[in-house]
């Protein structure tokens, strides 16, 4: 399983944030680290068709289009999550969306993650307003993981979590990413311990393999 990005460029008002980026990701936990402002978030958003880009992206040698990506590629944004009134309604929201209609909510996996990420002090129908920033980030993580996409993208998924929980999250990613392409952007040194491969984005816009 391979995600091949060919000559990807993103331009904001005449300035290139990413220019002619060519890179291959295989199934597993791919970690992207790098300078701030080097275009890591932009890269994830482009893969998810949240912004316009030039270039081509192939998955298993087939060129991707927006419709396929909406159903099979999921992104956890860095902050500012969409929420509903309760934890469970927030987590189930994506299953109401047109492109996720065929996906089934996996109750067992939900219970497992809810406990693993240390949220089990709450009942699942607790009001979302009672959660702290870190707890909300874990809810957002569970929500995206339950969708079991072929391509899983996360932007600083542990930025509000302590080391103990971060270890559990990245430990879970390691297993979870075995049969999908995961691309995780993180500054967290703990992520390095669990990742299968490392990519480095520098301000000059190229990728180093480490």
């Amino acid at each position: 399983m391979c995600l091949f990005v060919e000559n990807l460029s993103v331009e904001y008002s005449g300035k290139y944030v990413l220019k002619n980026l060519t890179v291959k990701f295989y199934s597993g936990f791919n970690l992207i680290m790098g300078d701030s402002g080097s275009g890591k978030t932009t890269f994830l958003k482009a893969l998810c068709y949240l912004l316009d880009f030039k270039g081509k992206v192939y998955f298993k040698d087939k060129e991707l289009n927006k419709t396929w990506v909406r159903g099979n590629c999921k992104l956890i944004v860095q902050s500012g999550y969409y929420t509903e009134n309760t934890i469970i309604s927030t987590i189930k929201k994506p299953f109401e969306l047109k492109y996720n209609k065929e996906k089934n909510f996996d109750g067992n996996m939900f219970k497992k993650l809810f406990g693993l990420f240390g949220l089990d002090k709450f009942s699942s129908d607790e009001s979302i307003n009672k959660l702290s920033g870190g707890e909300l980030q874990r809810v957002a993580l569970i929500r995206a993981l339950l969708l079991k996409p072929k391509i899983f993208l996360a932007d600083e998924p542990t930025s509000n979590l302590d080391d103990n929980v971060s270890k559990k999250v990245y430990g879970f990613f390691r297993e979870y990413c075995k049969n999908r392409v995961c691309i995780i952007v993180s500054h967290d040194p703990i992520a390095r311990e669990f990742s299968d491969s490392l990519f480095y984005f520098s301000k000059k816009g190229f990728v180093d393999y480490g």
């Binding site: 909406r70 969409y82 929201k93 994506p94 969306l97 047109k98």
Partner: peptide, 22 residues
């Protein structure tokens, strides 16, 4: 004001119309 929430929904698979329905 809700730009990141809209992007969040689209990142989870929402169409543009679904993402702005709220």
């Amino acid at each position: 004001d809700n730009r990141s929430k809209i992007e969040d929904l689209m990142g989870l698979g929402a169409t543009e119309e679904e993402a702005v329905s709220f």
